[in-house]
């Protein structure tokens, strides 16, 4: 079994399990919807600046990622399938499969959050390409960091609220860059050319985070 086949098998297994009960997906979407509604009700009729819009959008995405994606390795422990995975698939392939699965979940979150947010807050999107690029690239980095930390908290004895506390300090560079890039996409005009630097930062950040995560994953995964 080569590397791609192994990762694909892990991804396929997770997708199949997810399709059976849709637990992670439903929980994520419920969290996104309810937090967005909460924000919309709290803000009321007032118009929100582009900076606030992109900040709120990303904070919702970040919180739902920290709540929904933390289960990916905890679920393996609960089902007692960790040993089976460790025996059958090398660590890097487990990581790749889980990473892609988490990325797909985040894509669903991105789409729902963007559509609902645009409707509720009357968001005007000036530059679709930039917004989609920042959402996609931001989700890659977010998935990379969350997957490693999810493996870490699966090892801890008190799993519940640990992931947000571990995740947020690490994601500040990413958050600052994606908020700036999405703000430029919302306001259009001059900011767009400046946003290229932010996109480069996001790409670099995602690359470094995923590389470090792959290197460090085996130490968390193997007993």
């Amino acid at each position: 079994m080569n590397w791609i086949q192994g990762s694909w098998a892990v991804l396929q297994k997770d997708l199949k399990l997810e399709m059976r009960n849709r637990y992670a997906l439903n929980m994520l979407l419920m969290f996104v919807l309810s937090s967005l509604l909460l924000i919309a009700f709290a803000i009321g009729q007032e118009s929100v600046s582009e900076r606030m819009q992109s900040a709120l959008l990303w904070i919702v995405i970040l919180f739902s990622a920290s709540i929904g994606l933390g289960r990916s390795f905890v679920a393996e422990e609960e089902r007692g399938t960790v040993l089976l995975l460790q025996l059958n698939v090398p660590g890097s392939q487990v990581f790749a499969g889980k990473l892609i699965f988490n990325f797909l979940l985040l894509l669903a979150v991105d789409i729902v959050a963007l559509v609902v947010f645009a409707l509720l807050l009357n968001m005007v999107i000036e530059n679709w390409g930039l917004l989609i690029a920042s959402l996609l690239l931001g989700s890659v980095g977010l998935a990379g960091a969350t997957t490693l930390l999810a493996a870490i908290i699966a090892r801890a004895s008190n799993k519940g609220p640990l992931l947000p506390a571990l995740l947020f300090p690490l994601l500040i560079p990413l958050l600052l860059s994606v908020v700036r890039a999405s703000r430029a996409a919302l306001s259009g005009g001059l900011g767009v050319s400046g946003a290229m630097g932010d996109l480069q930062t996001i790409i670099l950040f995602s690359g470094v985070v995923i590389t470090a995560a792959v290197l460090l994953f085996d130490y968390v995964w193997q007993d």
């Binding site: 690490l170 560079p173 990413l174 670099l204 470094v208 985070v209 995560a213 460090l216």
Partner: peptide, 8 residues
């Protein structure tokens, strides 16, 4: 892992 993200 934290040490790799802070330089950003």
């Amino acid at each position: 892992f934290a040490a790799t993200t802070t330089p950003f």
